[in-house]
Design a protein around this nucleic acid. Structure first.
Length: 266
DNA sequence: AACGAGTGCAACCGCAATCCA
DNA sequence: ATGGATTGCGGTTGCACTCGT
């Protein structure tokens, strides 16, 4: 646990990477792959810890990185995903090809927060500032990582243009709407929403989430996984279908027996 | 030109999760 | 089952740059 042991070793460089170091790392990974990160510095002749090498590769040197400014489409998607999952930057980055969690986190903190505030929206809760003024520490509430008991403040999403059905699922009959009732989530806020797909707590305290069909690809399952409940009920076009996350997330995703398969049977 | 405040970004830190002997 | 090693993640820091005075 804790800090990687290699970081205690002497003579390890810290701070900005030099072009020479970058070149060594790129050449090494191009030739051998990263394999075990802890062995990379030694094999690549770098005075860095493996953790530092990994970070440098993931956030800066990876060839598939899309650098440059974020598009409006990306902005919108980041905001929507943040509303759904909170500060789970890696989850958000997974939906934005070529972007890293670090990049999105920095962009959120430096630009999007400001934009939302200027638009009168609280960036933590995604609700009008007038509604949240004088409330508790919204920043802390938005922290998804350390607060499994304090889920994201809003869970409403709308159609995200980047999330299209997979090509290999073209023959799938997708229901026009899917809602999910998740038990034991009374602590989750079920407030009103300005978005099109509202979520609300029903009389039994279950949490219902409406998902637009345009979001219905395998990527949606990644954030469905975020729900802590072990059991939930799906409603395809209003018809109930009992399923458990665990059944889904243990190999049935994308298979004919999985969710898409279930839908296909309709 | 000099200085300080503000800003953006790369990198570090510390923790939790996971792997594996 | 256990504990050390390793990976992954989100929060935070520090530095370089820009801009206004």
């Amino acid at each position: 646990m804790g800090r990687h042991s290699c970081c205690y070793k002497q003579k390890l460089r810290k701070g900005l990477w030099s072009p020479e170091e970058d070149e060594k790392l790129v050449k090494h990974i191009a030739k051998y792959g990263h394999g075990c990160w802890s062995s990379v510095p030694k094999l690549a002749d770098l005075q860095r810890c493996g953790k530092s090498c990994r970070l440098r590769w993931i956030n800066y040197l990876r060839p598939d990185l899309k650098r440059g400014t974020f598009s409006q489409q990306e902005d919108k998607l980041i905001i929507e995903l943040h509303a759904a999952v909170g500060n789970r930057w890696s989850q958000i980055a997974a939906q934005l090809p070529g972007r890293t969690d670090n990049e999105i986190k920095n962009y959120w903190n430096s630009c999007i927060k400001k934009k939302l505030r200027q638009s009168g929206i609280d960036p933590s809760t995604h609700r009008p500032l007038s509604e949240v003024e004088g409330g508790e520490d919204k920043e802390a509430m938005a922290s998804g990582r350390t607060s499994t008991s304090a889920p994201p403040p809003s869970h409403t999403i709308e159609c995200a243009p980047l999330l299209q059905p997979n090509d290999d699922a073209n023959d799938v009959v997708v229901p026009s709407s899917v809602s999910i009732s998740v038990p034991d989530l009374r602590c989750w806020e079920a407030g009103s929403s300005s978005n099109t797909s509202a979520n609300s707590a029903n009389s039994s305290g279950e949490f219902e989430l409406q998902i637009s069909s345009s979001l219905f690809d395998s990527s949606i399952l990644q954030w469905l996984e975020l729900f802590p409940s072990k059991g939930a009920q799906f409603h395809f076009d209003g018809e109930p279908e009992d399923l458990k996350w665990s059944e889904y997330l243990n190999g049935t995703i994308g298979s004919d027996d999985g969710l898409l398969g279930e839908i296909k049977k309709e």
